[in-house]
Design a protein around this nucleic acid. Structure first.
Lengths: 124, 124
DNA sequence: GGAATATTAAACTAAATGGTTAAGTATGTT
DNA sequence: AACATACTTAACCATTTAGTTTAATATTCC
């Protein structure tokens, strides 16, 4: 029997897929945390990592395509800047669930429902 | 020269990696949205999808391993339930960035900073 | 013009993803 | 006992991922 095509070739360019996928990597989250402090050029962003420059370059592209960062090329330097909007999209996606887990927590007697957290940004 | 191992074999079991990765799939997000309404058994969850039962079963396992759902086996029926906590972890990760994009938005004159949204949960 | 610098592009690779079908494993039902 | 139901497991497959190294492309500096 002629084995059937397993996956439709033009698969999901779903923006939330791309967004969450971009966030599903430690390196990329660290890059975002760094960029939250200030814009930076590629070399500076790459320095802390034990991986090649092209590897970081690729990660940056994934973040860029997810809309999480933008790039301004100035001569040979590419300056990357965090873009808030997509994270807001995450927040918006998350929002309908919020009441759910706040309920869950309060029903457990743990009254963190009025979110008193809000710490300093730390690379993870 | 002996080509070097490309990727460390015991790669990232980072919980946030697993969490965001679990969310980076439309099908899985739909499953979560469904489970936010009420717990459900596997067959019922699978019904709306145009994919095989084992495929859905795998998605559920990924959600389960990310901690997003839990399973109670009752006879041959597996009842899945949404677990709020990991979504709270997303929120916590997101939090340090919040001021950033709220700032960005207000500085653009778009005063949505006091988040007046909060819609009904809708499968996406 | 030529060398150094900043960065991407190309070609390769091992492993993971997301799907498939077919086979197993319990548990109910008759 | 036999059959149906509700699943998971196994084996397979194409595509994508995340890294590598080497090469190419601009730009700046001397």
């Amino acid at each position: 029997m002629p084995r059937q095509a397993t996956v439709p070739p033009g698969a999901s360019p779903d923006p939330l897929d791309r967004l969450f996928h971009a966030l599903a990597d430690r390196t990329r989250r660290k890059l975002l945390a760094q960029l939250a402090l200030r814009p930076a050029k590629v070399t500076d962003l790459a320095r802390p990592f034990r991986m090649s420059l092209p590897a970081v370059s690729k990660h940056l592209r994934i973040l860029e395509e997810a809309g999480l960062i933008s790039r301004t090329v100035d001569g040979r330097v590419h300056r990357m800047t965090l873009t808030g909007e997509p994270l807001r999209q995450v927040e918006i996606w998350l929002d309908p669930f919020r009441s759910y887990w706040e309920e869950t927590l309060t029903s457990l007697g743990t009254d963190l429902a009025k979110h008193p957290r809000r710490g300093r940004l730390k690379a993870r």
